[in-house]
Write a protein that binds this DNA or RNA. Sequence first.
DNA 1: TTGTAGGCGACTCGCCGACAA
DNA 2: TTGTCGGCGAGTCGCCTACAA
Lengths: 385, 385
Amino acid sequence: MKISANTSGSSLTTANPVEGGEKNRVINPELWQACAGPLVNLPAAGTYVVYFPQGHSEQVAASMKKDVDAQIPSYPNLQSKLFCILHKITLHADTETDEVYAQMTLQPVPSFDREALLRSDLLMKAHKPQTEFFCKTLTASDTSTHGGFSVPRRAAEKIFPPLDFNMQPPAQELMARDLHDNVWTFRHIYRGQPKRHLLTTGWSLFVSGKRIFAGDSVLFIRDEKQQLLLGIRRANRQPANLSSSVLSSDSMHIGVLAAAAHAAANNSPFTVFYNPRASSSEFVIPLAKYYKAVCSNQISLGMRFRMMFETEESGTRRYMGTITGISDLDGVRWKNSQWRNLQVGWDEATAAATTISTATTAAAATTATTSATTATTTATADDGG
Amino acid sequence: MKISANTSGSSLTTANPVEGGEKNRVINPELWQACAGPLVNLPAAGTYVVYFPQGHSEQVAASMKKDVDAQIPSYPNLQSKLFCILHKITLHADTETDEVYAQMTLQPVPSFDREALLRSDLLMKAHKPQTEFFCKTLTASDTSTHGGFSVPRRAAEKIFPPLDFNMQPPAQELMARDLHDNVWTFRHIYRGQPKRHLLTTGWSLFVSGKRIFAGDSVLFIRDEKQQLLLGIRRANRQPANLSSSVLSSDSMHIGVLAAAAHAAANNSPFTVFYNPRASSSEFVIPLAKYYKAVCSNQISLGMRFRMMFETEESGTRRYMGTITGISDLDGVRWKNSQWRNLQVGWDEATAAATTISTATTAAAATTATTSATTATTTATADDGG
DNA sequence: TTGTAGGCGACTCGCCGACAA
DNA sequence: TTGTCGGCGAGTCGCCTACAA
């Protein structure tokens, strides 16, 4: 399947041999980011964060395509949010599916430290400029066995090394590295009437090897060393590991909550996996972002509200709305939680419903009113302002 | 990939729409059993069982290829075994890999009932006679794209419908149903010099569709309605869902233990998944079997010991040994546990090491001394005696 | 009895413009 | 600018027997 594998790798940071089968490799952060999407912004190791067990549970539910049952015991001592220090964060990609996720080691911070923290950690990391990047959703022709891949003109000119137009036809061999450091080779040719950029030889191996289909997306980026990297983003299908065949979803939810409760009780470290594309549950957010959202402006009914959404071709777009409700999502288990406690009526309800179609916002867009995380949404709005 | 799918299905029993993505289908029990192997014997719904959380945890560890960390909180109130009633048991197969597993709903039984239970439930279900069955480990030729599948002579004569030998060459179309009720069609032909049974047309679709390779096994059975069923058993590779990318293995272990502890404290039902081929952790066993093993004969050092193992071609073979040690596997967490508390010196150490190669016993065979579950092993010995 | 290899059709893959959209 | 199609060549797939092991 794979054309070649290279283990050399430029070890920018030291990664532990982690669970999860990924060998001792460092995932390229830019490529990971590109696959995760433009809205994902991971906190840095060593900084303080807020952890929402409710949101974590929600992500597990989304991955299992199963709602939480009534059999989950309640953890009365577990608060709806935990202030933590992020000891370690490592990037990963599923060996089978290339699905990106992050592993974080969190340690709850005792309550008496919080006030100081809230004041200390206000430096927001500046958004890195998007690297040179293009992303295309594959057509039926791109994925059929009948031919190759039609490269959008601008993409080819921006990302690929320039062709020698003295050749007839102009062509070259492209090598691109995926998240697992496998190298894929493609013949890049400029031909046809009218002329266009195509990837031919090697392309079908990539399609069958990654098991991608029409509707999935492929992205190419160029890192700072001008090396070509490529990744995939699968369409919004049912999760692959729908059934783990190992653990019941009940046990998974209990595991998430019990681990958090135990860590909170002992101020001991615990580990979570964050999967940015499995759901729109950004359940670990920088403390500074949280503070900015909650403390700097009072949330109230009728207030204007801005939020960024991801567009089809991996861009971002801002939507405006008005806060129409503030209430607990689950008043029994999580009272006075700030997790998804806002309902927003969007200005462009129909526009949103028709144009927004990514995984993260589909559910939100279909109903005109949207629940959203206080912290992330308002902070995003501030960024955009 | 699949030649045909049939959803009609003969609903022998009613199965709930379960988690795990399997649609509302009843897995054929005989086919499930054949895929699980001859040593697997599931308890029946409505009967009493003994549940070992330690063994359950071990299976999770095996599935994740990761040992238990030190970060797991201890559950001092969780005993090393729970007496439970098995409310429900449903059979499943992973949609991607065809891996078989069972989902069980257990409810702990209050301690004051146990004495009565121990006396009440002594009826052992008689071993069902093995259905008509054959299992072949695939060769390089079987799986290459160069040709078809060479059917062992006895297998073809025993399992397949008889050929019309007036034809030249004798041939027929075979249809066989897999665990998911997909129908696969093969051309079965008897030809060559010397004559042999072959599956040709349709075979390569099956191989690529199921992603099976040399070393994996294919099995055919005939159910009571003379219908042909087929299943696969993958070779002893690393688990596919090595990384779930959803939950850390710590959380998984915590989930298993916390779910059991919560159920034990409240005598409330809980759910476990049992994967017979993921590890040799038979952590839910019939109460009668347990009782027979523990109470009817006293286990002591130097005692002779018999145990069944699975052979390569899905047969069983009995090995003899002597008990050389009785001790806690984990004296800290699980004191006085009967889980793997026996060390056995086998009479045919080398024979065992060379001939036994299935997943379930490989670890045991390589070290001359073997740890084994008290209950299951001695009970098996009694059966065979 | 059954695993592998050589021989050879037939058919799919995959590279190419021609056309629209 | 780019998605799909008809066209064809080269390469695999896959059916057959021969020959051991």
